[in-house]
Structure formats: structure tokens, C-alpha cells
Simulated scan of single mutants.
Amino acid sequence: MAPTNDHPGEQAAQEPVKLIAVQETALSVDEVFKAVGDDAAGGVALFVGTVRNHDSGADVDRLGYSCHPSAEAEMRRIAEKVVAEYPVRALAAVHRVGDLRIGDLAVVVAVSCPHRAEAFDACRKLIDDIKHEVPIWKHQKFSDGTDEWVGA
């Protein structure tokens, strides 16, 4: 049986979590931005995390991200929690793993909501919770030959 729509002019409710991925390939801001497009959204907040050339006063040459097999499922759990707390129309989050160079994109998240303040708040909650709760670890390699694991 086909779904019915009791409200003319409204689309049937769709799953707001559009894209969740942990991947070894380069990330695309355009892909994430397009995933959260929604005609009912007045605001889209997008965050892009990049590999920087320093950390705590030390020069960083490169880094690698590794993750637990549950990382993508944990990202989805966090995304669903954000959707439950905010009026999210659409949400997307992708995180890179593997070896990255300075300037590479490490994480891209986006949220669309009816209003900009909600979009900003939901996006900040999404990236902060991903950073603190998803089992993804960063291995930084410094210019002086030392290295450090972050989040392990």
C-alpha cells in the first residue's frame, strides 16, 4: 500500500540522517552540503575540520586517523540523538581515516534546520559529540621526529 499524505503540499516524512560515513577516500564538502539540502530549511550550518600544521606548540608534518569498527555506527547514534534534540530537516557527517597531509579535510558535518540558530546549535552539538564519543584516534607525527596518539 502506498503511503498517504493527509496534508496537501507537504512531503511525506523522510529520514533526516542523510549521510554517515567513515572513509579512506578524500572528503567532499559539496557532497555533504548537497545531502542536507531541504526546501523547508532556512539555515544550513556546515563545519569542516582540516589537518593543521601545529599542535600545542609543536610542528605537525602529517597525521593518520584510525578507528574502531563501530565508529560509523557510533556516528549514526550521535546523529540520531541530535535529530531528536533539534528540529533537524537533514544531517550529514563524514570522517576520514588513513594517512592525511596538512590541509586535508578530516571531517565534514552539516545540518539543515528551519532557522539558522537551530542549525548552528545542532551542528556544534554534532561535531562536538563526534569528537568526544566516536572511537576515532589521531596519530600525529611531528617535525622533530616524535609522535603522539590523541583520543586513544
Rank of each mutant, 00 (worst) to 15 (best):
A2Q: 05
P3Y: 08
P3F: 06
P3S: 13
T4F: 01
D6S: 07
D6C: 02
P8I: 10
G9V: 08
Q11L: 15
A12M: 04
Q14Y: 10
Q14E: 14
E15Q: 13
V17F: 11
K18Y: 02
K18H: 05
I20R: 00
V22R: 10
T25I: 00
T25N: 03
A26T: 02
S28V: 10
V29Y: 07
E31Y: 04
E31V: 09
E31R: 11
F33C: 10
F33K: 12
K34T: 14
A35L: 09
A35N: 10
V36Q: 01
V36N: 02
D38C: 10
A41E: 06
A41C: 10
A41R: 11
G42P: 09
V48C: 06
G49P: 12
N53L: 01
N53T: 00
S56E: 15
G57W: 09
G57R: 09
G57M: 09
R62Y: 09
L63A: 08
G64R: 15
G64C: 13
G64Y: 06
Y65W: 04
C67I: 07
H68Y: 12
S70M: 11
A71F: 04
E72I: 04
E74N: 11
M75P: 10
R76V: 13
R77H: 06
I78H: 12
V82F: 07
V82L: 08
V82K: 07
V83T: 09
Y86G: 04
A90H: 07
L91H: 05
L91S: 06
A92I: 03
A92T: 04
V94M: 10
V94Y: 04
V94I: 09
H95A: 01
V97T: 12
G98Q: 02
L100D: 12
R101I: 01
D104A: 00
V109R: 07
V109C: 15
V109E: 05
V109S: 11
A110D: 14
A110T: 15
V111W: 03
V111I: 08
P114N: 02
P114D: 01
H115Q: 03
R116M: 03
R116K: 04
E118D: 15
F120R: 03
D121W: 02
A122C: 05
C123F: 02
D128N: 13
D129I: 00
D129T: 04
D129E: 08
H132E: 01
E133W: 04
P135V: 09
I136W: 11
I136M: 13
W137G: 05
K138D: 06
H139K: 15
Q140W: 10
K141V: 15
F142W: 07
F142P: 00
D144A: 02
D144K: 02
G145C: 06
T146K: 00
D147S: 15
W149V: 12
W149N: 13
W149H: 14
V150Y: 08
V150I: 15
G151K: 04
A152P: 14
